[in-house]
Design a protein around this nucleic acid. Structure first.
Lengths: 103, 103
DNA sequence: GCCGCATGTAACCATTTGCGTTACACTAGC
DNA sequence: GCTAGTGTAACGCAAATGGTTACATGCGGC
């Protein structure tokens, strides 16, 4: 059987969703960061942070993206989930957790 | 095969993951909240908040759960995602976002 | 009734995070 | 040189997060 850790670790470092967002939405539509931020109803700084991986896509931003670009909010959140999880797994060994299964 | 119920269920208020956690892990193993919190390496208050839907399961907690119960961290985060997204969609109308598709 | 255990939760505190505004530096194009 | 777009630091602020402590409740055993 294949454990969660194995599968997760097998994946290469997933790109932060902002990278995908820039290519798939901004570049593809010829939008500037400034324009996009105005359409999304957030500050330019906020969008910039996401695009450069210094902030994540939360539930509210995912809904904003779904409205502006006609995409699925869930898909953005799933990308974010993968990204966050990958980084959280890296700290797995630092967590003091006692196994409770098959003791 | 995919039932109608499955698809339809997506539109109903999903339970908070803590509810599932309590039934599937604590109750099933006869664990008290106090015991479980110690095993997970978090305070009783923190676990209690999750179990009663007053806090969500974040990436780190998901990894803790995966260690303690031998479950998939991703599955917990996915449940949390569904829960968060459902609530975020409720506020969709309050967001001032301009559509950029099919202009 | 009484007691001990588990539980939910409020109060308090410190740390962190998220977002907006403003300002500054860098870059590319005219 | 001027302008537009961009990244980002600095600031303020509101909200969230997690730990500790303490209190009230509910319940089983005695």
């Amino acid at each position: 059987m294949r454990t969660t850790t194995e599968v997760t670790m097998k994946m290469h470092n997933p790109p932060h969703p902002g990278e995908v967002l820039r290519k798939l939405c901004l570049d593809a539509m010829g939008l500037s960061v400034t324009e996009a931020s105005r359409s999304l109803g957030v500050s330019r700084k906020t969008l910039s942070a996401i695009l450069n991986g210094r902030a994540g896509i939360g539930p509210e931003m995912a809904v904003r993206l779904s409205i502006a670009f006609g995409t699925s909010a869930e898909s953005w959140l799933n990308q974010q989930l993968q990204y966050d999880l990958w980084h959280a797994e890296k700290g797995r060994k630092r967590l003091r957790v006692t196994r409770l299964t098959a003791a």
